[in-house]
Simulated assay, not measured.
Amino acid sequence: MRNIAATLLVLICIQFTLNAQSQDEQSIRNILAKQSAAWNEGNIEGFMKGYWENDSLMFIGKKGLTYGWKNTLNNYKKSYPDARAMGQLTFTIIKLKPLSNQYQEVIGKWHLKRDDGNLEGHFTLLFQKIKNNWFIVMDHSS
């Protein structure tokens, strides 16, 4: 009887863990979907809602390392001054990997369809759960 109870307890714990992981993964996928929708509307501020609004946010791109949410926002605005320059953004998630209960890694591709020529590259995102919400705390895009 003890073995059955122990087995049931283990199965319940596994199911709870899988459900939590599924919810976390879905939350992160929703954030990325909202980001691309905001981008495609020409709304950089809306796009930035997926990022941790903190001076410790790290963005690594072709111009090097940028610290801080406001600095990252300003760089986006400088590089993409209007909706035409922004184009239409598509994300393709290659891998979403839980690192712990508080961190998730996302590897993917981004593609901008623009009249002036398409752009594309890859990204690695580090998501952190802060006050029960997921935010990008590090973005390495190339």
Rank of each mutant, 00 (worst) to 15 (best):
Y51S: 05
Y51K: 05
Y51G: 03
Y51T: 03
W52S: 05
W52A: 02
W52L: 10
W52I: 01
W52M: 06
E53G: 04
E53S: 15
E53T: 07
N54D: 15
N54R: 11
D55C: 01
D55N: 15
S56C: 01
M58E: 13
M58Q: 14
M58T: 10
F59V: 07
F59Q: 00
I60D: 00
G61T: 00
G61W: 02
G61M: 00
G61A: 01
K62M: 15
K62P: 15
K63R: 13
K63M: 06
K63P: 11
K63W: 10
K63Y: 12
K63N: 14
K63V: 09
G64C: 07
G64I: 05
L65Y: 12
L65C: 03
L65E: 09
T66V: 12
T66S: 06
Y67W: 13
Y67I: 00
Y67G: 01
Y67Q: 13
Y67V: 00
G68E: 06
G68I: 01
G68F: 05
W69N: 08
W69E: 09
K70R: 14
K70A: 11
K70H: 12
K70I: 09
K70N: 14
K70E: 15
N71K: 13
N71A: 15
N71E: 10
T72H: 10
L73S: 08
L73R: 09
L73G: 06
N74G: 03
N74Y: 07
N74Q: 13
N74S: 14
N75Q: 13
N75F: 08
Y76N: 00
Y76E: 00
Y76H: 06
Y76T: 02
K77G: 09
K77C: 12
K77T: 10
K78E: 13
K78Q: 14
S79T: 11
S79F: 11
S79D: 09
S79L: 14
Y80K: 01
Y80T: 02
Y80R: 02
P81S: 08
P81E: 05
P81Q: 05
D82P: 01
D82Q: 06
D82Y: 08
D82I: 03
